[in-house]
Simulated scan of single mutants.
Amino acid sequence: MAADYGEVKFFGAGGSPFARRVQIALKLKGIQYQHFEEDIFNKSELLLKYNPVHKKVPVLVHNEKPLAESLVILEYIDETWKNYPLLPQDPYQRASARFWSKFIDDKCLPALWKAAWTVDEKEREKGVVESYEALQYLENELNDKKFFGGETIGLVDLAANYIAFWLPLLQEVVGLNLLSNEKFPKLYAWSQEFVNHPVVKENLPPKDRLSGFFRARYASITANSK
């Protein structure tokens, strides 16, 4: 007998790593949902209704109860649907997973963003140094595990999806070499495992479209800086 998931709506945008976190989690857990694809430059009235505070994706609506912010949504999904757990049962390990997920959002992603998109050379170099430091912390935390969650994809892996898929395309476009097998062999091996997982692979944006978006954005930034 199929599980009763209630009514689940998901508002996302194809190129958003934050929305993709949620979409992959929904697929891993086999949750049926209605997908609303948003144009981030022309947001729908429904999105603004369900997320009036931040006015952005992702948004999950379960039985007409909306939730925003990807990490919050992931924890809600995990607590509501118990199959394919994203968080470990052990309290310390659960707290640790939350810590590293927040570290990725608060420290790692801003550093990578600064390294890639900052026009000022000194600030960009600062971003590169901060990125290396953040990636080294993740390399050490991963240790010899297949995924941050052990043998299966968990909360931290989903939080780090940007590093696995978006970052390699971005660094190719802007001429950086942050994540590589030489610099971070464990993290690089993890990234390959993650993006080639069957569920993940089916729920990532097309590489050519994302790369084109990065190239257009980078060209615009460099042109405006002259």
Rank of each mutant, 00 (worst) to 15 (best):
N140Y: 02
V173K: 06
A160R: 01
Y162S: 10
V129W: 00
A134F: 10
P168D: 13
S131T: 13
Q136N: 15
L178I: 14
V129Y: 05
L179Q: 12
G127D: 11
L170V: 03
V173R: 08
D157I: 10
V174G: 08
V128H: 07
K145A: 04
V156W: 02
V156A: 00
E125N: 15
I163C: 04
E123K: 12
D144A: 09
L158F: 10
F148E: 04
P168A: 12
G150V: 06
Y137H: 12
V129P: 01
F147A: 00
I163A: 00
K122G: 08
I153S: 01
L179S: 04
L158P: 11
G127E: 11
Y137N: 07
E141N: 01
E125M: 12
W166L: 02
K126A: 14
A134P: 03
G149D: 11
A159W: 05
N177V: 00
D157T: 07
A160H: 00
N177H: 10
G127P: 06
G154E: 08
G127S: 10
Y137A: 06
L179V: 05
L169N: 09
S180H: 12
V173P: 03
L142H: 10
F147S: 01
N143F: 07
Y137M: 05
F148A: 01
T152K: 15
L167K: 07
T152E: 13
K126H: 10
I163K: 04
P168T: 09
K145N: 11
L135Q: 03
L155W: 07
I163L: 14
R124Y: 04
